[in-house]
């Protein structure tokens, strides 16, 4: 059967998904990647894997979404995944910033207090 994706691209997608998945599982087992953040990656990779394995399934969407070729749709999907991951990262960064501001303020208060107590003791 004629596929909407070239065999080369399909093999590349499937291999890429498998290699990345192995990498992510190893990172999880080494405690370098929390499950919380890895799940999104694994779902994204599963999607890429499925696209490579059953290209006819997404071939249906190609013209529906307005792409000329299915391979462009694949690039589009990956771009969408990347943008979503970047958005999540931005949210995480903002949250981290909020927390470090709080830490810096509280630690600075403590240091000022300690200094004050020290000078009192010296007198």
């Amino acid at each position: 059967m004629n596929s909407v994706l070239s065999v080369h691209l399909r093999v590349s997608l499937v291999l890429f998904a498998i290699i990345m998945a192995i990498l992510i599982f190893r990172l999880i087992s080494k405690n370098k990647l929390p499950i919380k953040y890895s799940l999104f990656w694994l779902v994204a990779l599963l999607l890429i894997f499925l696209v490579g394995f059953f290209p006819n399934f997404i071939g249906f969407f190609t013209s529906f979404v307005g792409f000329q070729t299915t391979s462009n749709l694949v690039v589009g999907i990956i771009l969408g995944i990347l943008l979503t991951i970047t958005l999540l990262l931005t949210i995480i960064v903002a949250e981290q910033k909020r927390k470090s501001i709080l830490l810096i303020q509280e630690l600075s208060f403590l240091k000022a207090k300690v200094k004050e107590l020290d000078t009192k003791k010296d007198k």
């Binding site: 470090s100 501001i101 810096i104 303020q105 630690l107 600075s108 208060f109 240091k111 000022a112």
Partner: peptide, 12 residues
């Protein structure tokens, strides 16, 4: 004085 241990910007 309170010395912030890192620069926070005017808001912080």
């Amino acid at each position: 004085i309170i010395d912030l241990i890192q620069n926070l910007g005017i808001g912080g």
